[in-house]
Computed example of a mutant assay.
Amino acid sequence: MEAEDLQRLVTTTMPYGKYQGRLIADLPGAYLAWFARKGFPPGQLGRLLALMLELDHNGLSSLLDPLRRR
C-alpha cells in the first residue's frame, strides 16, 4: 500500500462495470468480494479494490470519513 492509496479510495471512481462512476470507497462489499473470488484487475485499480475489501471486511470503512471531508 502506498501512503496516497487511502485518499485515492475517496477520489477514484470505478471505470467500468455495474458500478461505473461510483467511488471505490462506496462500492458494496459483495461486489468487492466478487472481485476477490474472480481476481482483481492488474495495476492500481486492483490494488485499490483489494484495499477497500480489507477495510470493508474488517469494519474500518469509517476511517475514510475524514478524507471525504477534504
Rank of each mutant, 00 (worst) to 15 (best):
L51F: 05
L45E: 05
N58R: 13
S61L: 12
L9W: 08
E2H: 10
H57K: 14
S62W: 13
D5R: 00
L6C: 06
L32W: 09
A25Q: 10
D5N: 01
L6P: 02
D56T: 15
V10N: 01
T13L: 11
R8V: 02
A30S: 15
F40C: 06
M14V: 10
R47N: 05
L48H: 08
W34I: 09
T11G: 06
L45S: 02
T12P: 06
G21W: 06
A25G: 10
D26V: 00
M52S: 09
T13P: 08
E2T: 00
A36M: 06
Y16I: 08
L27A: 02
G46I: 05
G29L: 15
G46Y: 04
T11C: 01
G17C: 09
M1R: 07
R22V: 15
D65P: 05
L53F: 02
L23T: 04
K38L: 07
A30T: 15
M52E: 13
N58C: 11
P28I: 03
G17R: 09
D5M: 03
R8K: 14
A3I: 13
Q44F: 10
A33T: 07
A33E: 12
S61I: 07
P41H: 09
R68T: 02
D5P: 04
L63M: 15
P41K: 09
M1K: 07
A30Q: 14
A50I: 03
L67T: 00
A33I: 02
G43T: 07
S61N: 10
R70G: 14
G17E: 08
T11W: 00
R37M: 14
L49E: 05
I24Y: 02
Q20C: 11
T13S: 13
T12L: 10
F35N: 07
K38F: 01
H57R: 15
L63R: 14
Q7F: 14
L64A: 00
R22L: 12
L53V: 03
D65W: 09
Y16Q: 12
W34H: 14
Y19W: 08
L60P: 04
Q44L: 14
Q44S: 13
L63A: 15
L60K: 11
L9H: 08
L9C: 09
W34L: 15
Q20G: 08
S61K: 11
I24E: 00
R37P: 10
L51M: 10
R8Y: 07
R68D: 08
G21I: 04
D65F: 10
P42C: 08
P42S: 14
L64W: 01
R70S: 12
T12E: 12
G46V: 00
G29S: 14
R69I: 12
S61R: 13
G29W: 13
F40H: 07
L51D: 04
R47E: 05
R70E: 12
P15E: 03
R70Q: 13
Y31G: 06
G39K: 09
G59Y: 04
M52L: 05
R68E: 06
L23P: 01
L23W: 05
R22K: 14
P15M: 07
Q20D: 04
A36V: 05
G43S: 02
L49P: 05
S62Q: 14
A30E: 15
G43I: 07
L55F: 03
D5W: 04
V10Y: 01
K18P: 05
P42M: 10
T11Q: 08
L64K: 01
L6D: 04
A25I: 11
L27R: 01
M52H: 04
